[in-house]
């Protein structure tokens, strides 16, 4: 896995990171390499250590073990030349209530860029980019949840960083705003920005990220592109059939069909899982008609990242 990633010019390289909170091991020998121009999706159940990893990466947290370097240089709390090129959009909205939209962006941008004219341009761009032009005079309290998230993003990216870290930027955001945010991230990436993106929305990650790392209990459990991850699943196709009546004998014969590896009846629904093949649906329908089994609606599904995620991290609830 690591060799594969090393082909990129690493923008971020985390190796053997261990972070404990007292007894609790939050990050457990975690490795991550992010190449230039990538959009890396960092996925994991609640409490798997994503935010902790990112905070270590930003040198906000002390860690017990491991090496972190960014842009090829070791990351430390006072590595200001590195920090200058990093943009952060935290999981929770962090804006100043007493300042207007414009002032918020200008203030945070000013922590990175001294030159006034340049800063003005950056702030204007960030406002246009997040579609906040109409709201520049608004105080954050008057913004809706989606606009607030966009402001949060604008504050984090106005200084045009080379690496942007998004920690769940689309929580509690409606689909329209979410699309706007995702489009924005894609545009930034086209301009050459490297992105690390965490989210619990699998579709979002699937469509946005060029590579995905799944973390669970603080260590990496899978890595690859969305399609390579899906390809690693045994399940390639799930067929669901509404049936009125089916015998044990029928079920046994169904399992004999090539590529079918799992058959299950749930109420009036028959669920058939296949691990490959190309004409599974035809074979299944032929079988049902031969046996004279009445059936209603049929649908087939290809595996999603969600399936990959659930298969890899298990189905039990997390903290």
């Amino acid at each position: 896995m690591q060799q594969e990633a090393a082909q990129f010019t690493p923008v971020v390289s985390i190796s053997n990171l261990v972070k404990r909170y007292h007894e609790k091991v939050a990050v457990d020998h975690f490795y991550l390499t992010v190449g230039e121009g990538e959009i890396l999706g960092l996925l994991g159940p609640n409490g798997s250590g994503k935010t902790t990893t990112l905070n270590c990466l930003l040198s906000l947290l002390k860690y017990d073990k491991g090496d972190i370097s960014v842009f090829g240089k070791p990351m430390t709390p006072s590595a200001y030349d590195i920090k200058r090129d990093i943009g952060v959009v935290m999981q929770n909205v962090a804006v100043i209530d007493a300042l207007s939209v414009y002032e918020n962006i200008d203030f945070f941008c000013g922590l990175y860029i001294r030159d006034k004219a340049q800063r003005k341009r950056c702030v204007e761009d960030a406002i246009a980019f997040t579609g906040l032009s109409e709201y520049r005079k608004y105080r954050p309290k008057k913004l809706s949840g989606g606009l607030l998230r966009r402001l949060n993003i604008a504050c984090g990216i106005a200084h045009r960083p080379k690496l942007i870290i998004f920690d769940e930027p689309t929580v509690a955001v409606d689909p329209q705003s979410r699309n706007a945010i995702l489009d924005g991230i894609r545009r930034l990436n086209k301009e050459g920005t490297t992105v690390i993106y965490t989210s619990h929305y699998m579709e979002e990650v699937e469509e946005l990220c060029s590579r995905i790392v799944i973390i669970d209990n603080g260590h990496q459990v899978a890595e690859g592109t969305a399609s390579s991850l899906k390809a690693s699943l045994r399940n390639r196709e799930t067929t669901t059939v509404e049936v009125s009546r089916i015998t044990e004998e029928d079920l046994r014969s169904l399992r004999e069909i090539s590529h079918v590896y799992d058959v299950m009846v749930n109420g009036g629904t028959l669920i058939i899982r296949c691990d490959g093949g190309s004409h599974n649906l035809v074979h299944i329908m032929n079988f049902l008609m031969e046996r004279g089994i009445d059936f209603g609606r049929i649908s087939t599904q290809l595996p999603t990242l969600n399936d990959v995620f659930l298969e890899i991290t298990g189905k039990e609830l997390r903290d």
Partner: peptide, 13 residues
């Protein structure tokens, strides 16, 4: 605070 995180991510002592 969360705003504090922004400060400490910025290149400002």
């Amino acid at each position: 605070t969360e705003i504090g995180k922004r400060y400490e991510c910025a290149p400002v002592p």
